[in-house]
Amino acid sequence: MNGLLDAYRAQFKVTFAVQLEYRASLAIWLIGTILEPTVYLVVWSTVARAQGGQVGGFAPEDFAAYFIVTMLVNQWTFTWIMHEFEYSVRMGALSPQLLRPLHPIHLHVADNITYKLLTSTVVVPVAILLAWAFGARFEPQPWALALAVPALALSFATRLLLGWTLALAAFWTTRVFAINEMYFLASLFLSGQMAPLALLPAGAQLLATVLPFRWVVAFPVELILGRLTPEQAGVGLAVQALWLVISLGSMTVIWREGIKRYSAVGA
């Protein structure tokens, strides 16, 4: 365990150094991260005002709170492995990672956490600023905020493992771009990033519930906003745990099979 922590610490330093080398691109990414939810927020607030102050129980200040928290939850739990993994497989860059006595996912996790710590120093102050500017209304419950911590951890782990599972398709077809696009689109609609799930048609809500999307984003968001009862919170955490087990299982099996097919192209 100590050895693993040591490796994580070393990767923290590497990621930190690399991200600082690319300050400009980091800044551009951050602008995108902040702009997207701000646009949704403005659109939905305008709709609410046009409809006499509310849409499906959401007033403009509720939309502000919702999208600001969604931005934070998404920033803390999203992964980008699918974008890198296909390249690694196709160009053989995976090879050196495979020859080290440590599963490549560990360095990815360490990389990911470092990136998030680093970006949080900007995203959190911006979130506070946005909340003030748009007059966001928060009614958080202390117990719910406490539960939000494990909920975010479960969400991060599940999204990471699902991302890896999908990325591993690269072992069979070296063009996983199409699969990724579908996943991102589904994620955008069904996880509540474009609109609160309560505002979606019943069919879409059902789909979001049976698939993991609701549980990895919308659930922690609603928990933080204090919109859930303790029972709903308990069910949510249980379903999250279930998805974690499913994604860990599928990732493990697919990794084991896929790695046999890795042809270390030109590597």
């Binding site: 050895g3 040591d6 490796a7 610490r9 070393a10 990767q11 330093k13 590497v14 080290r100 006595p101 440590l102 360095l107």
Partner: peptide
Amino acid sequence: YELNRAIYR
């Protein structure tokens, strides 16, 4: 190198 040191313990 430092990363490799940690990975290889």
